[in-house]
């Protein structure tokens, strides 16, 4: 890494430089370039199959990229086992299907990683967990099991679970797509609150355009593995540049 590069790293929470990825012969990501500054909130949207989830999953190395560099907090992701653990404690992730551990209580879901990865005493981990459960407004569910909660509650628990690791970057992979309509807002409210507090770098794959308008600093539109357009929400929604974006937006708004 050059000297100049090192300096620029400091202000970026995350950089993707010419990232390419293939599934077999299928070229999922084509020359993705993305710079995200500390505390920036980014919404990624696009039609299904455009590679937006793959981008997110590459950032914490759930998927491996084959070309280019991904630099998180100044460190390039190489797949080195030790480095990976560090990376993943710094990068939190929420999944479309929540992926809570069904055999553990809500509290145990939240304390598992802090206790065994960060090696925090149990009592302390539980106190932190309760703090975050209060933030997502379900402290009274602490001793229940995931199966007893509604989808919206489960997703809020999943957000709290990631926050317990005190991440610098939060990734959201379509956090509201699997939810019933009336539960979407309770999850979005939690995310908006998180964004409003500031400081947390957020990347969110979502089709919730209201959310994008309200919190995003930048909206990125992807299609066929490429970043087609990126702009402020205002410009993006009111003055989309490419035809593909216009078509996408017209289809979303038509609903």
């Amino acid at each position: 890494m050059s000297e100049a590069n090192k300096q620029t790293d400091q202000k970026f929470a995350l950089q993707m430089i010419n990232v390419n990825k293939w599934y077999g012969d299928f070229h999922v990501l084509k020359d993705i370039n993305l710079d995200v500054t500390q505390g920036e909130r980014i919404v990624i949207c696009g039609p299904s199959g455009s590679g937006k989830s793959t981008v997110i999953r590459c950032i914490n190395h759930l998927e491996e990229h084959q070309q280019g560099q991904i630099i998180v907090d100044g460190i390039e992701i190489t797949g080195d086992v030790k480095q990976l653990e560090k990376l993943r404690t710094d990068v939190g992730m929420c999944f479309q299907h929540f992926n809570l551990f069904p055999h553990l209580s809500i509290l145990d879901n939240l304390t598992l990683a802090p206790r065994w990865v960060k090696k925090i005493p149990k009592a302390e981990a539980e106190a932190t967990a309760m703090k975050y459960l209060e933030r997502v407004k379900i402290p009274d569910q602490a001793n229940k099991f995931p199966g007893q909660l509604s989808g919206g509650q489960q997703q809020r628990v999943a957000i709290a679970r990631s926050l317990c690791m005190d991440p610098k970057v939060m990734l959201f992979d379509e956090p509201t797509s699997a939810l019933d309509p009336e539960m979407i807002s309770e999850v979005l409210d939690v995310m908006i609150e998180l964004a409003d507090e500031g400081g947390m770098t957020m990347l969110c794959v979502t089709h919730e355009m209201g959310f994008a308008k309200q919190v995003a600093d930048r909206v990125i539109f992807m299609d066929a593995g490429q970043i087609i357009e990126e702009n402020t929400p205002n410009e993006f929604f009111n003055n989309p540049q490419s035809e593909r974006t216009q078509l996408f937006l017209s289809q979303i708004i038509a609903h």
Partner: peptide
Amino acid sequence: SHGQTEAALSLGLTPSQTLRF
């Protein structure tokens, strides 16, 4: 489900901790 493994790994658990817990 694979999602369970992914969730555990993304929290920073090692592969062996993921298996165990």
